[in-house]
Design a binder for these strands. Structure first.
Lengths: 202, 202
DNA sequence: GTCTATAGAGGGATAGAC
DNA sequence: GTCTATCCCTCTATAGAC
Protein backbone atom coordinates (compact mmCIF):
# COMPACT_ATOMS: atom_id res chain seq x y z
CA UNK A 1 0.00 0.00 0.00
CA UNK A 2 2.82 2.40 0.85
CA UNK A 3 5.02 2.92 -2.17
CA UNK A 4 8.38 3.92 -0.72
CA UNK A 5 9.95 6.95 -2.38
CA UNK A 6 13.57 8.01 -2.34
CA UNK A 7 13.90 11.60 -1.23
CA UNK A 8 15.31 12.76 -4.56
CA UNK A 9 12.65 10.90 -6.48
CA UNK A 10 9.58 12.73 -7.66
CA UNK A 11 6.22 11.73 -6.27
CA UNK A 12 3.88 11.12 -9.17
CA UNK A 13 1.17 13.66 -9.89
CA UNK A 14 -1.41 10.97 -9.37
CA UNK A 15 -0.06 10.18 -5.93
CA UNK A 16 0.02 13.86 -5.00
CA UNK A 17 -3.67 14.07 -5.78
CA UNK A 18 -4.45 10.97 -3.78
CA UNK A 19 -2.52 12.26 -0.81
CA UNK A 20 -4.30 15.61 -0.99
CA UNK A 21 -7.64 13.86 -1.39
CA UNK A 22 -7.00 11.76 1.73
CA UNK A 23 -6.31 14.90 3.71
CA UNK A 24 -9.27 16.95 2.51
CA UNK A 25 -11.88 14.20 2.34
CA UNK A 26 -10.95 13.04 5.85
CA UNK A 27 -11.14 16.55 7.19
CA UNK A 28 -14.42 17.75 5.66
CA UNK A 29 -16.20 14.65 4.40
CA UNK A 30 -17.19 13.97 0.82
CA UNK A 31 -20.03 16.44 0.38
CA UNK A 32 -18.25 19.48 1.81
CA UNK A 33 -15.09 18.83 -0.16
CA UNK A 34 -14.58 20.86 -3.35
CA UNK A 35 -12.36 19.56 -6.11
CA UNK A 36 -10.66 22.96 -5.94
CA UNK A 37 -9.70 22.26 -2.31
CA UNK A 38 -8.00 19.05 -3.36
CA UNK A 39 -6.16 20.67 -6.27
CA UNK A 40 -4.99 23.48 -4.03
CA UNK A 41 -3.89 21.08 -1.28
CA UNK A 42 -1.95 19.12 -3.91
CA UNK A 43 -0.49 22.29 -5.42
CA UNK A 44 -1.71 21.19 -8.83
CA UNK A 45 -4.01 22.36 -11.57
CA UNK A 46 -7.68 21.54 -11.12
CA UNK A 47 -8.13 20.19 -14.65
CA UNK A 48 -5.53 17.54 -13.95
CA UNK A 49 -7.74 16.00 -11.29
CA UNK A 50 -10.32 15.08 -13.91
CA UNK A 51 -7.60 14.01 -16.32
CA UNK A 52 -6.32 11.45 -13.81
CA UNK A 53 -9.48 10.37 -12.02
CA UNK A 54 -12.39 11.32 -14.32
CA UNK A 55 -14.47 12.69 -11.44
CA UNK A 56 -14.59 13.66 -7.79
CA UNK A 57 -16.75 10.60 -7.14
CA UNK A 58 -14.22 8.20 -8.67
CA UNK A 59 -11.34 9.70 -6.73
CA UNK A 60 -13.35 9.43 -3.55
CA UNK A 61 -14.08 5.77 -4.17
CA UNK A 62 -10.39 5.04 -4.52
CA UNK A 63 -9.65 6.74 -1.19
CA UNK A 64 -12.64 5.14 0.49
CA UNK A 65 -11.70 1.61 -0.52
CA UNK A 66 -8.26 2.26 0.98
CA UNK A 67 -9.77 3.49 4.23
CA UNK A 68 -12.27 0.68 4.56
CA UNK A 69 -9.45 -1.78 4.03
CA UNK A 70 -7.41 -0.07 6.73
CA UNK A 71 -10.27 -0.08 9.19
CA UNK A 72 -11.76 -3.53 8.66
CA UNK A 73 -9.33 -5.76 6.84
CA UNK A 74 -6.15 -4.79 8.66
CA UNK A 75 -6.82 -7.08 11.60
CA UNK A 76 -8.50 -9.90 9.69
CA UNK A 77 -5.42 -12.19 9.82
CA UNK A 78 -5.32 -11.95 13.62
CA UNK A 79 -9.06 -12.57 13.85
CA UNK A 80 -8.83 -15.72 11.77
CA UNK A 81 -5.65 -17.22 13.16
CA UNK A 82 -6.65 -20.70 14.37
CA UNK A 83 -3.37 -21.32 16.14
CA UNK A 84 -3.77 -18.64 18.83
CA UNK A 85 -5.89 -18.78 21.96
CA UNK A 86 -8.69 -16.36 22.72
CA UNK A 87 -6.65 -14.59 25.38
CA UNK A 88 -3.71 -14.19 23.05
CA UNK A 89 -5.94 -12.71 20.38
CA UNK A 90 -7.38 -10.24 22.85
CA UNK A 91 -3.90 -9.05 23.79
CA UNK A 92 -2.75 -8.84 20.20
CA UNK A 93 -5.82 -7.06 18.87
CA UNK A 94 -6.01 -4.55 21.73
CA UNK A 95 -2.43 -3.50 21.17
CA UNK A 96 -2.30 -3.50 17.41
CA UNK A 97 -5.68 -1.90 16.88
CA UNK A 98 -5.01 0.98 19.25
CA UNK A 99 -1.66 1.45 17.54
CA UNK A 100 -3.46 1.60 14.20
CA UNK A 101 -5.96 4.12 15.52
CA UNK A 102 -3.31 6.27 17.13
CA UNK A 103 -1.79 6.61 13.67
CA UNK A 104 -5.22 7.21 12.08
CA UNK A 105 -7.43 8.69 14.78
CA UNK A 106 -10.04 10.04 12.36
CA UNK A 107 -10.40 6.82 10.41
CA UNK A 108 -13.40 5.22 12.18
CA UNK A 109 -15.59 8.30 12.36
CA UNK A 110 -14.80 9.20 8.76
CA UNK A 111 -15.66 5.78 7.35
CA UNK A 112 -18.76 5.26 9.47
CA UNK A 113 -20.22 8.68 8.84
CA UNK A 114 -19.69 8.43 5.09
CA UNK A 115 -21.44 5.07 5.10
CA UNK A 116 -24.27 6.62 7.02
CA UNK A 117 -24.59 9.73 4.87
CA UNK A 118 -24.69 7.74 1.66
CA UNK A 119 -25.36 4.03 2.19
CA UNK A 120 -26.18 3.50 -1.51
CA UNK A 121 -22.58 4.06 -2.46
CA UNK A 122 -21.44 1.27 -0.20
CA UNK A 123 -24.03 -1.29 -1.11
CA UNK A 124 -22.96 -0.80 -4.71
CA UNK A 125 -19.30 -0.05 -5.00
CA UNK A 126 -17.34 -0.72 -1.88
CA UNK A 127 -17.11 -4.21 -0.56
CA UNK A 128 -17.44 -4.06 3.18
CA UNK A 129 -15.77 -6.61 5.36
CA UNK A 130 -18.69 -8.62 6.68
CA UNK A 131 -16.68 -11.71 7.42
CA UNK A 132 -15.47 -10.36 10.75
CA UNK A 133 -18.70 -11.40 12.43
CA UNK A 134 -18.05 -14.91 11.17
CA UNK A 135 -14.37 -14.89 12.05
CA UNK A 136 -12.66 -17.51 14.16
CA UNK A 137 -12.30 -14.92 16.91
CA UNK A 138 -16.06 -14.45 17.17
CA UNK A 139 -16.55 -18.20 17.18
CA UNK A 140 -14.07 -18.48 20.05
CA UNK A 141 -16.06 -15.83 21.92
CA UNK A 142 -19.24 -17.84 21.37
CA UNK A 143 -17.65 -21.02 22.68
CA UNK A 144 -16.44 -19.30 25.82
CA UNK A 145 -19.83 -17.76 26.66
CA UNK A 146 -22.33 -20.17 25.23
CA UNK A 147 -25.26 -18.42 26.90
CA UNK A 148 -24.80 -15.21 24.98
CA UNK A 149 -24.84 -13.85 21.44
CA UNK A 150 -21.13 -13.39 20.68
CA UNK A 151 -21.96 -10.15 18.90
CA UNK A 152 -22.54 -8.60 22.32
CA UNK A 153 -19.02 -9.49 23.35
CA UNK A 154 -17.58 -8.41 20.04
CA UNK A 155 -19.32 -5.02 20.20
CA UNK A 156 -18.06 -4.49 23.72
CA UNK A 157 -14.49 -5.31 22.81
CA UNK A 158 -14.44 -3.19 19.67
CA UNK A 159 -16.26 -0.38 21.47
CA UNK A 160 -13.64 -0.26 24.21
CA UNK A 161 -10.98 0.18 21.54
CA UNK A 162 -12.72 2.40 19.00
CA UNK A 163 -15.19 4.51 20.95
CA UNK A 164 -12.62 6.89 22.45
CA UNK A 165 -11.54 7.82 18.94
CA UNK A 166 -15.16 8.42 17.96
CA UNK A 167 -15.69 11.00 20.72
CA UNK A 168 -12.26 12.56 20.28
CA UNK A 169 -13.64 15.51 18.27
CA UNK A 170 -15.64 16.53 21.32
CA UNK A 171 -12.50 16.56 23.46
CA UNK A 172 -10.77 18.64 20.83
CA UNK A 173 -13.53 21.21 20.44
CA UNK A 174 -14.08 21.63 24.17
CA UNK A 175 -10.39 21.46 24.96
CA UNK A 176 -11.08 19.00 27.77
CA UNK A 177 -8.23 16.70 26.87
CA UNK A 178 -5.30 17.69 24.71
CA UNK A 179 -3.68 15.46 22.12
CA UNK A 180 -0.81 14.25 24.27
CA UNK A 181 -3.06 13.39 27.19
CA UNK A 182 -5.40 11.52 24.87
CA UNK A 183 -2.60 9.50 23.33
CA UNK A 184 -1.30 8.67 26.80
CA UNK A 185 -4.75 7.45 27.83
CA UNK A 186 -4.93 5.24 24.75
CA UNK A 187 -1.54 3.71 25.47
CA UNK A 188 -2.75 2.78 28.94
CA UNK A 189 -5.96 1.53 27.41
CA UNK A 190 -4.29 -1.30 25.54
CA UNK A 191 -3.68 -3.27 28.72
CA UNK A 192 -6.91 -2.11 30.37
CA UNK A 193 -9.06 -3.30 27.49
CA UNK A 194 -7.43 -6.71 27.45
CA UNK A 195 -7.80 -7.04 31.21
CA UNK A 196 -11.45 -6.00 31.24
CA UNK A 197 -12.34 -8.15 28.30
CA UNK A 198 -10.90 -11.21 30.01
CA UNK A 199 -12.85 -10.39 33.18
CA UNK A 200 -16.06 -10.25 31.22
CA UNK A 201 -15.34 -13.63 29.69
CA UNK A 202 -14.78 -15.38 33.02
CA UNK B 1 -39.21 20.56 23.76
CA UNK B 2 -42.13 18.59 22.40
CA UNK B 3 -45.04 20.92 21.83
CA UNK B 4 -48.11 18.70 22.03
CA UNK B 5 -50.60 19.27 19.24
CA UNK B 6 -54.23 18.31 19.15
CA UNK B 7 -54.98 16.25 16.09
CA UNK B 8 -57.31 18.83 14.61
CA UNK B 9 -54.86 21.62 15.30
CA UNK B 10 -52.59 22.84 12.54
CA UNK B 11 -48.88 22.36 12.92
CA UNK B 12 -47.20 25.66 12.29
CA UNK B 13 -45.26 26.21 9.09
CA UNK B 14 -42.17 26.87 11.12
CA UNK B 15 -42.51 23.55 12.90
CA UNK B 16 -43.07 21.73 9.61
CA UNK B 17 -39.78 23.10 8.35
CA UNK B 18 -38.00 22.09 11.52
CA UNK B 19 -39.39 18.59 11.37
CA UNK B 20 -38.36 18.25 7.71
CA UNK B 21 -34.94 19.67 8.51
CA UNK B 22 -34.44 17.12 11.28
CA UNK B 23 -35.21 14.32 8.85
CA UNK B 24 -33.08 15.49 5.97
CA UNK B 25 -30.10 16.80 7.93
CA UNK B 26 -29.97 13.60 9.97
CA UNK B 27 -30.12 11.47 6.86
CA UNK B 28 -27.58 13.23 4.63
CA UNK B 29 -25.59 15.51 6.89
CA UNK B 30 -25.35 19.26 6.59
CA UNK B 31 -23.21 19.59 3.48
CA UNK B 32 -25.15 17.15 1.31
CA UNK B 33 -28.51 18.62 2.24
CA UNK B 34 -30.12 21.02 -0.22
CA UNK B 35 -32.59 23.60 1.03
CA UNK B 36 -34.82 22.33 -1.78
CA UNK B 37 -34.77 18.86 -0.17
CA UNK B 38 -36.03 20.32 3.09
CA UNK B 39 -38.77 22.34 1.40
CA UNK B 40 -39.89 19.28 -0.53
CA UNK B 41 -39.85 17.08 2.57
CA UNK B 42 -41.93 19.70 4.35
CA UNK B 43 -44.29 20.08 1.40
CA UNK B 44 -43.69 23.81 1.49
CA UNK B 45 -42.36 26.54 -0.73
CA UNK B 46 -38.61 27.01 -0.78
CA UNK B 47 -38.77 30.78 -0.34
CA UNK B 48 -40.54 30.30 2.97
CA UNK B 49 -37.53 28.59 4.42
CA UNK B 50 -35.52 31.76 4.10
CA UNK B 51 -38.47 33.82 5.29
CA UNK B 52 -38.60 31.86 8.54
CA UNK B 53 -34.98 31.01 9.18
CA UNK B 54 -32.92 33.46 7.11
CA UNK B 55 -30.51 30.77 5.90
CA UNK B 56 -29.74 27.07 5.71
CA UNK B 57 -26.96 27.61 8.23
CA UNK B 58 -29.27 29.22 10.79
CA UNK B 59 -31.87 26.46 10.46
CA UNK B 60 -29.15 23.89 10.90
CA UNK B 61 -27.92 25.51 14.07
CA UNK B 62 -31.39 25.34 15.59
CA UNK B 63 -31.64 21.63 14.82
CA UNK B 64 -28.11 20.97 15.98
CA UNK B 65 -28.58 22.63 19.35
CA UNK B 66 -31.63 20.41 19.86
CA UNK B 67 -29.69 17.29 18.98
CA UNK B 68 -26.70 18.12 21.14
CA UNK B 69 -29.05 18.70 24.04
CA UNK B 70 -30.70 15.35 23.45
CA UNK B 71 -27.41 13.53 23.27
CA UNK B 72 -25.48 15.15 26.10
CA UNK B 73 -27.81 16.96 28.44
CA UNK B 74 -30.60 14.43 28.63
CA UNK B 75 -28.86 12.30 31.24
CA UNK B 76 -27.17 15.11 33.14
CA UNK B 77 -29.62 14.97 36.06
CA UNK B 78 -28.91 11.30 36.63
CA UNK B 79 -25.16 11.91 36.38
CA UNK B 80 -25.27 14.61 39.01
CA UNK B 81 -27.72 13.07 41.46
CA UNK B 82 -25.85 12.96 44.76
CA UNK B 83 -28.44 10.82 46.47
CA UNK B 84 -27.94 7.67 44.37
CA UNK B 85 -25.17 5.12 44.65
CA UNK B 86 -22.76 4.32 41.85
CA UNK B 87 -24.43 0.97 41.17
CA UNK B 88 -27.85 2.54 41.00
CA UNK B 89 -26.61 5.16 38.56
CA UNK B 90 -25.12 2.46 36.36
CA UNK B 91 -28.44 0.63 36.22
CA UNK B 92 -30.41 3.78 35.56
CA UNK B 93 -28.12 5.18 32.89
CA UNK B 94 -27.76 1.89 31.04
CA UNK B 95 -31.49 1.50 30.77
CA UNK B 96 -32.48 5.06 30.04
CA UNK B 97 -29.69 5.81 27.62
CA UNK B 98 -30.30 2.72 25.52
CA UNK B 99 -33.98 3.62 25.50
CA UNK B 100 -33.08 7.08 24.29
CA UNK B 101 -30.84 5.68 21.56
CA UNK B 102 -33.40 3.13 20.45
CA UNK B 103 -35.70 6.05 19.80
CA UNK B 104 -32.93 8.07 18.11
CA UNK B 105 -30.47 5.54 16.72
CA UNK B 106 -28.77 7.98 14.34
CA UNK B 107 -28.28 10.69 16.91
CA UNK B 108 -24.73 9.95 18.11
CA UNK B 109 -23.14 9.42 14.71
CA UNK B 110 -24.90 12.49 13.31
CA UNK B 111 -23.77 14.83 16.07
CA UNK B 112 -20.24 13.49 16.28
CA UNK B 113 -19.61 13.52 12.55
CA UNK B 114 -20.93 17.06 12.16
CA UNK B 115 -18.65 18.20 14.95
CA UNK B 116 -15.79 16.50 13.22
CA UNK B 117 -16.55 17.84 9.75
CA UNK B 118 -16.83 21.40 10.96
CA UNK B 119 -15.39 21.95 14.44
CA UNK B 120 -15.36 25.73 13.98
CA UNK B 121 -19.14 25.84 14.09
CA UNK B 122 -19.18 24.19 17.49
CA UNK B 123 -16.44 26.16 19.13
CA UNK B 124 -18.37 29.29 18.17
CA UNK B 125 -22.09 28.70 18.27
CA UNK B 126 -23.09 25.52 20.00
CA UNK B 127 -22.37 25.09 23.64
CA UNK B 128 -21.22 21.55 24.18
CA UNK B 129 -21.85 19.82 27.44
CA UNK B 130 -18.37 19.55 28.94
CA UNK B 131 -19.51 19.23 32.49
CA UNK B 132 -20.19 15.50 32.17
CA UNK B 133 -16.51 14.76 32.73
CA UNK B 134 -16.77 16.69 35.98
CA UNK B 135 -20.08 15.16 37.00
CA UNK B 136 -20.75 13.48 40.31
CA UNK B 137 -20.94 10.15 38.49
CA UNK B 138 -17.38 10.47 37.19
CA UNK B 139 -16.22 11.46 40.67
CA UNK B 140 -17.87 8.36 42.09
CA UNK B 141 -16.03 6.29 39.47
CA UNK B 142 -12.75 7.88 40.53
CA UNK B 143 -13.37 7.14 44.19
CA UNK B 144 -14.11 3.51 43.47
CA UNK B 145 -10.97 2.97 41.39
CA UNK B 146 -8.46 5.37 42.82
CA UNK B 147 -5.60 3.87 40.80
CA UNK B 148 -7.08 4.85 37.48
CA UNK B 149 -8.13 7.88 35.47
CA UNK B 150 -11.93 7.83 35.74
CA UNK B 151 -12.14 8.87 32.10
CA UNK B 152 -11.09 5.35 31.16
CA UNK B 153 -14.05 3.94 33.05
CA UNK B 154 -16.38 6.56 31.69
CA UNK B 155 -15.31 5.90 28.08
CA UNK B 156 -15.80 2.19 28.56
CA UNK B 157 -19.26 2.60 30.01
CA UNK B 158 -20.42 5.05 27.37
CA UNK B 159 -18.79 3.00 24.64
CA UNK B 160 -20.69 -0.11 25.68
CA UNK B 161 -23.92 1.83 25.34
CA UNK B 162 -23.26 4.01 22.33
CA UNK B 163 -20.83 2.11 20.12
CA UNK B 164 -23.38 -0.38 18.76
CA UNK B 165 -25.39 2.54 17.42
CA UNK B 166 -22.28 3.98 15.81
CA UNK B 167 -21.61 0.82 13.79
CA UNK B 168 -25.27 0.23 13.02
CA UNK B 169 -24.98 1.66 9.49
CA UNK B 170 -22.53 -1.13 8.66
CA UNK B 171 -25.03 -3.73 9.79
CA UNK B 172 -27.69 -2.08 7.67
CA UNK B 173 -25.62 -1.83 4.52
CA UNK B 174 -24.29 -5.36 4.75
CA UNK B 175 -27.59 -6.76 5.92
CA UNK B 176 -25.85 -8.70 8.67
CA UNK B 177 -28.38 -7.79 11.35
CA UNK B 178 -31.84 -6.51 10.65
CA UNK B 179 -33.56 -3.81 12.63
CA UNK B 180 -35.59 -6.10 14.87
CA UNK B 181 -32.62 -8.25 15.75
CA UNK B 182 -30.58 -5.14 16.51
CA UNK B 183 -33.24 -3.71 18.79
CA UNK B 184 -33.52 -7.03 20.56
CA UNK B 185 -29.76 -7.09 21.12
CA UNK B 186 -29.91 -3.59 22.57
CA UNK B 187 -32.69 -4.53 24.98
CA UNK B 188 -30.54 -7.38 26.27
CA UNK B 189 -27.62 -5.03 26.40
CA UNK B 190 -29.12 -2.85 29.13
CA UNK B 191 -28.58 -5.52 31.77
CA UNK B 192 -25.34 -6.78 30.23
CA UNK B 193 -23.74 -3.35 30.29
CA UNK B 194 -24.67 -2.79 33.91
CA UNK B 195 -23.38 -6.23 34.90
CA UNK B 196 -20.09 -5.84 33.06
CA UNK B 197 -19.52 -2.33 34.32
CA UNK B 198 -19.93 -3.48 37.91
CA UNK B 199 -17.49 -6.35 37.32
CA UNK B 200 -14.89 -3.91 36.04
CA UNK B 201 -15.33 -1.77 39.12
CA UNK B 202 -14.73 -4.60 41.59
C1' DG C 1 0.75 15.90 -19.35
C1' DT C 2 -0.31 20.50 -18.15
C1' DC C 3 -2.38 24.76 -18.73
C1' DT C 4 -6.39 28.59 -19.50
C1' DA C 5 -10.87 29.41 -20.35
C1' DT C 6 -15.42 28.31 -20.09
C1' DA C 7 -19.48 25.51 -20.48
C1' DG C 8 -23.31 23.94 -17.91
C1' DA C 9 -25.82 22.60 -13.96
C1' DG C 10 -26.92 23.29 -9.23
C1' DG C 11 -28.12 25.57 -5.26
C1' DG C 12 -28.73 29.52 -1.71
C1' DA C 13 -31.06 33.46 -1.42
C1' DT C 14 -34.16 37.43 -2.67
C1' DA C 15 -37.45 40.63 -5.29
C1' DG C 16 -41.84 41.61 -5.81
C1' DA C 17 -46.71 40.24 -6.88
C1' DC C 18 -50.62 38.56 -4.45
C1' DG D 1 -47.54 34.66 4.95
C1' DT D 2 -47.09 32.50 0.57
C1' DC D 3 -46.15 32.24 -4.15
C1' DT D 4 -43.32 32.59 -8.92
C1' DA D 5 -39.49 33.97 -11.14
C1' DT D 6 -34.90 34.74 -11.15
C1' DC D 7 -30.41 36.40 -9.68
C1' DC D 8 -25.82 35.12 -9.12
C1' DC D 9 -22.28 32.67 -7.36
C1' DT D 10 -20.05 28.24 -6.89
C1' DC D 11 -18.66 23.99 -8.40
C1' DT D 12 -17.79 19.96 -11.47
C1' DA D 13 -16.23 18.86 -15.69
C1' DT D 14 -14.45 19.49 -20.42
C1' DA D 15 -12.63 21.79 -24.72
C1' DG D 16 -8.75 22.96 -26.85
C1' DA D 17 -4.10 25.34 -27.03
C1' DC D 18 0.60 24.33 -25.90
Amino acid sequence: MDTPQRLDEKVSTEEKFKEAARTVFMKKGYAATKTRDIAEEAGLNLALLNYYFRSKEKLFEIIMIEKVQQLFAFIAPVFNDKSTSLDTKIDLIATSYIDLLLKNPDLPLFVLSEIRNNPERFSKNVQLETSILKSYFVRQLGEKKIDMNPIQLFLTFLGMLVFPFIVRPVFQVTGTINENAFNQLMEERKALTAKWMKMILE
